[in-house]
Design a protein around this nucleic acid. Structure first.
Length: 339
DNA sequence: ACTTGAAGGTAAGGTTATTG
DNA sequence: CAATAACCTTACCTTCAAGT
């Protein structure tokens, strides 16, 4: 099963393989190939169902028409949905996507980068882990096109596409305050990365802005790599120790889900006894009773922007990096209302 | 209005040199 | 002299630069 090559077409058409290549790559006019020869080649190619050999093409051009996508966890709803958008968008430009998950582990991330490198991807879309900055700089000094997503390194001048996490958390908290909740806590991940830091900052800023006393006991930071059960245990412990708690903001989608589970098992009535806002929309949030208010990320727009920015880097090497910060949308549902 | 030759990374296959 | 190691060619397919 060798497949039809440019050579076979050339033989049948009685021209050189180069001529066939020009015609099939739309350079017939530019290369002044006659109309008749062009048509003949097109016809033969169609008849033989010619498909270019990407390996051979990559060998010559150094381009594989492949991009690498590194996410935190492809099983996570947010990253899975985003990966799908990236796949569709990349396809419009003729690119295929290779992906992998870091589990927020820098060693895993390095391993993935290694794989993507020897697979010769043309560009990188990276959800960086905490200590991946060195690797990012390495890619940059090799002038590899790359876009960071979800989070970025303030000290590195690279392209990135992220959410305005600060605003997301700020809006969520302000909304809870406006709904009459008085003592609001946050459950977040123990991470110094931009996306988590901004969410915490937004939360604190909203409390301060509305003259609501804030102290550290209102913040619970959990390790990213806990299992579901430990999340539940920790969250329950936390919620029951804060005095007069009447609302809680969960700073990631999986924390929100663990939070719902925890609160239910405590027998508290969501909304009435405890207001709740989650992060990232999810089918569960819409379908749960009561439905769950959340900070929703514009996934379609994020994916589109990521690919656009990457394509710009790919097609215009050396052009200035681009930073895109997208606005979140607060989706108000029943979990943040007392009535 | 086209053709020729080279290149690019890898591996199968062939040739020559070296060892026992 | 045969087995093996070490080295060299060739082929894969496409595209580019340089021809005619």
């Amino acid at each position: 099963m060798k497949g039809i090559s440019i050579k076979d077409i050339a033989k049948q058409a009685g021209v050189s393989p180069t001529t066939v290549s020009f015609v099939l790559n739309g350079k017939a006019k530019e290369k002044r190939i006659s109309e008749q020869v062009s048509k003949k080649i097109q016809k033969i190619a169609a008849r033989l169902k010619y498909k270019p050999n990407q390996l051979a093409r990559g060998l010559r051009t150094g381009k594989t028409k492949t991009i690498g996508l590194i996410v935190e966890d492809i099983a996570n709803n947010f990253f899975a949905s985003l990966a799908k958008v990236v796949e569709d968008e990349a396809d419009k430009y003729g690119y295929k996507v290779l992906y992998g998950s870091t589990e927020d582990n820098t060693e895993k991330a390095k391993g993935l980068l290694e794989v993507l490198k020897y697979r010769q991807v043309d560009g990188y879309i990276i959800t960086p882990t905490k200590n991946l900055d060195k690797e990012i700089e390495l890619l940059q000094s090799a002038s590899k096109p790359l876009v960071l997503m979800d989070r970025y390194f303030p000290h590195i001048n690279s392209s990135y596409v992220v959410l305005n996490n600060y605003k997301g958390a700020y809006d969520a908290t302000t909304h809870l305050i406006a709904q009459g909740y008085k003592k609001i806590a946050i459950v977040t991940i123990a991470s110094e990365q931009t996306q988590m830091k901004d969410r915490l900052d937004g939360f604190v800023a909203a409390l301060k802005e509305h003259k609501i006393p804030f102290n550290k006991s209102l913040v619970k930071r959990l390790a990213f790599d806990l299992d579901r059960e430990s999340f539940n245990t920790e969250i329950k412990k936390f919620l029951t120790t804060v005095k007069d708690l009447d609302a809680v903001f969960f700073a990631t989608n999986y924390l929100g889900i663990a939070g719902i589970e925890s609160i239910r098992s405590l027998g508290w009535e969501i909304g009435k006894e405890i207001g709740l806002v989650g992060f990232d929309d999810h089918d569960l949030f819409r379908l749960h009773s009561p439905s769950i208010t959340c900070v929703s990320q514009p996934i379609a727009s994020i994916g589109k922007n990521i690919v656009e920015v990457l394509m710009n880097e790919l097609n215009h090497p050396g052009s200035p990096s681009r930073q895109v910060v997208l606005a979140p949308e607060l989706v108000v549902r029943a979990s943040s209302s007392r009535t």
